[in-house]
């Protein structure tokens, strides 16, 4: 990987928290799938990038970041996992061995950003007391985004340039050993985390039945995800129409939460 390619990866990583895409960097560049695709594009292999991105994305499928919390950094996991996979020819499952620890490390950068940005709050207070609306451009957008770019893009660029080949080298040196088979086994189990995390939010009331319907659609009918989604949409419409105004009572989302913690 050239330093220029590493820098582009760093910019993609900045975009995951940056503010420029109608504020949805979090849902676009902030997803392992999208970072897998872009990292692949930068390295000249968007097809492998997409495949690796899909595999890593499953682990983080149901991640919820609420009230300023940030449990795992799937963007950095997606970039580093894909970069290592493409530069060293690792399989998607082997890339997980790199992506998962990186995803935990990335939250350090998020916390650092959230703490340093408080400096600009006091700048905004000063402009507010002066009635200076133009100043808020600097306090809310220009300075915080420059700081964010430095905090995110530089470590990611360096990690891609120096770290990805080194990490890939470690995994590559295990080739053919039982360790690689075990990494594959673990990688095969890990999507359960992303699925269970999303189930925590939606697997409630009568909706639970539909989880099993979806499962059987794949096991016995061999439906692909698009087909499952279309049937799911129709089943949801039928259910809500039949239940009428009783639909929300039937599932009682809020009441079901009382046994949490």
């Amino acid at each position: 990987m050239s330093i220029f390619q590493a820098l582009l990866c760093g910019i993609c990583y900045y975009m995951s928290a940056g503010t420029w895409l109608v504020g949805v960097g979090f849902y676009t560049f902030g997803r392992a799938l999208i970072q897998g695709f872009f990292t692949g594009l930068i390295l000249g292999d968007p097809i492998t990038g997409t495949m690796v991105g899909c595999t890593i994305q499953l682990i983080y499928l149901g991640v919820m970041s609420t009230g300023g919390s940030f449990p795992a950094d799937q963007a950095l996991a997606g970039i580093m996992g894909t970069a290592a996979a493409i530069t060293a020819g690792l399989s998607a499952e082997e890339a997980i061995a790199i992506a998962v620890p990186i995803g935990l490390l990335g939250t350090v950068l998020y916390n650092f950003r959230m703490v340093t940005a408080t400096a600009f709050v006091h700048m905004a207070d000063k402009y507010a007391a002066e009635g200076n609306t133009r100043g808020i451009w600097y306090a809310n957008v220009v300075f915080p985004q420059v700081a964010l770019f430095l905090i995110y893009a530089i470590p990611c660029t360096l990690a891609c340039y120096y770290g990805a080949p080194a990490l890939a080298g470690i995994v590559d040196s295990l080739a053919g050993s039982n360790a690689i088979r075990v990494i594959g086994v673990i990688g095969g189990m890990l999507p359960v985390i992303g699925i269970a995390m999303n189930m925590k939010a939606i697997f409630k009331g009568e909706a639970r039945l539909f989880f099993f319907i979806g499962f059987l659609m794949v096991v016995y009918l061999d439906f692909n995800m698009v087909a499952v989604s279309l049937f799911a949409l129709l089943m949801a419409l039928v259910y809500v129409n039949l239940k009428g105004d009783g639909a929300e009572k039937a599932l009682a989302f809020a009441e079901e939460d009382d046994d949490d913690e």
Partner: peptide, 17 residues
């Protein structure tokens, strides 16, 4: 939310499989 939750559950089941 109820309808989308049903869609979501169906898709999660398929993903698990």
């Amino acid at each position: 939310i109820v309808g989308a939750g049903i869609m979501g559950c169906t898709v999660m089941g398929a993903l698990a499989a």
